[in-house]
């Protein structure tokens, strides 16, 4: 599949908005999910280390 030029590739046969729009939304959803997972991990570690300290003192 030879696109000939970058602009053809971006234009995607006149359907660029729809094709790149759907790929962009998919990328955003995946990045958001990975971000949520990382945030979940960070907050969990903070809470659990604090939980451990209280356990030791208690």
């Amino acid at each position: 599949m030879n696109w000939g030029s970058w602009s053809n590739f971006i234009d995607m046969g006149g359907r660029g908005f729809y094709v790149w729009g759907s790929y962009l939304i998919t990328l955003i959803c995946i990045v958001l999910e990975l971000g949520q997972l990382a945030r979940h991990k960070r907050t969990l570690w903070q809470r659990l280390t604090q939980f451990m300290k209280l356990n030791k003192q208690g």
């Binding site: 599949m1 696109w3 046969g13 006149g14 359907r15 729809y18 094709v19």
Partner: peptide, 17 residues
């Protein structure tokens, strides 16, 4: 998906979704 698969006869490039 973008550099091997050909253009679709009826849908052109939109099918790449």
């Amino acid at each position: 998906s973008f550099f091997v698969a050909p253009t679709d006869a009826t849908q052109g490039e939109a099918y790449r979704i």
